[in-house]
């Protein structure tokens, strides 16, 4: 696989996660600590992105 393809895959997953949280999760609805469901979904993207990047970095040479 080329470096460009690897780079695009690494970027695409977090971008899709954010788009999913922002566009697919309704803005109204239940809240927790005054924070709506959409924003909680966005916050949940952070640990998921960390896990994804950590998994992807195995291939990077020191």
């Amino acid at each position: 696989m080329t470096a460009l393809a690897r780079a695009l895959i690494t970027l695409a997953v977090p971008v899709l996660l954010v788009l999913l949280a922002v566009l697919a999760v309704p803005a109204d609805g239940p809240t927790c600590l005054g924070i709506g469901l959409r924003i909680w979904a966005l916050f949940a993207c952070a640990p998921a992105t960390s896990a994804w990047l950590w998994w992807r970095q195995r291939a990077v040479p020191a």
Binding site: P14, L33, G34, I35, I39, W40, F43, C45, A46, P47, T49, S50, L53, W54, R56, Q57, V60, P61, A62
Partner: peptide, 26 residues
């Protein structure tokens, strides 16, 4: 390069305090 990628992998997890910041504003 590995130090860079590892730091960036940890960076989103480091944002764990943002819900608390938002809760403080609310």
């Amino acid at each position: 390069p590995q130090a860079i990628v590892r730091a960036q992998a940890a960076a989103p997890l480091y944002m764990v305090m943002f819900p608390l910041l938002m809760a403080v504003a609310v």
